[in-house]
Simulated scan of single mutants.
Amino acid sequence: MKYLVLVAFVAILGSLGSALYFMMQDGRNGRAKSSNMARALGFRVGFSILLFLCILGAWKMGWIQPTGIQAGQ
C-alpha cells in the first residue's frame, strides 16, 4: 500500500510539473498550449481524487489503520 501511495504522489507531482512546462512553453499556438496544460491539470485533479478514494476505501476495509492522536483527547 505504501508503494502505491508513493507512485500516486509521484504521478501527481509529475502531472503538475508537466502543466508547469506547458504553461511556461513559448508556443505560437496558444490554444494547443492551454489545452495541454488543462489536460495535465485535469489528470492531476482526477488522480488526486482517485488516490483519496482508494485510501478511504482501504481504511474502511481495514487494510490500513490511522495513527496519531486519538479522537477525544
Rank of each mutant, 00 (worst) to 15 (best):
K60T: 09
L56T: 10
M1E: 10
P66D: 04
A58E: 08
A32S: 10
G42F: 05
M24P: 04
R28G: 15
M37A: 09
R28E: 14
M1L: 07
S34E: 14
A38Y: 09
Y21H: 10
I12N: 05
G14A: 00
V10N: 03
G42M: 06
L16D: 02
F52M: 12
D26E: 10
F47Y: 13
F22R: 06
V7E: 10
M24D: 11
S48M: 14
C54S: 11
R39D: 09
V7P: 02
G72L: 01
I69H: 03
K2Q: 01
S35Q: 10
N36V: 13
F52K: 07
G57A: 01
Q65C: 09
V45E: 08
S18P: 08
M37N: 04
R31T: 13
A40S: 01
S15G: 08
Q73L: 11
I69C: 00
A11N: 02
S34Q: 12
L53P: 03
F52S: 14
M37C: 02
L41N: 00
R31A: 11
A40W: 00
K60I: 14
I64K: 02
L20W: 08
L4R: 12
G68E: 05
A11D: 03
F52L: 13
Q25E: 13
L20D: 13
Q70K: 13
R44M: 10
K60M: 08
L50C: 13
G46C: 01
I69F: 03
A58V: 11
G72T: 01
S18Y: 14
G57H: 02
V10K: 06
G46Q: 00
G42C: 12
G42K: 10
D26K: 10
L53S: 06
L51M: 14
M37I: 04
G46E: 09
L4V: 07
F22N: 13
S15W: 04
M1D: 11
L6T: 12
A19P: 00
Y3W: 11
C54H: 04
R44L: 13
L13P: 00
I12G: 04
R31F: 08
P66G: 01
L53D: 06
G30S: 11
Y21D: 15
L6I: 14
G17A: 15
L41W: 00
I69L: 07
L50N: 04
G46R: 03
S34M: 09
P66A: 08
L6A: 14
I55A: 15
Y3V: 14
Q65G: 03
V45N: 04
D26S: 02
T67H: 02
A71D: 08
L4T: 10
S18L: 14
A40G: 00
V45W: 11
K2M: 05
K60V: 09
A38Q: 06
V5Y: 09
M24F: 10
F9W: 07
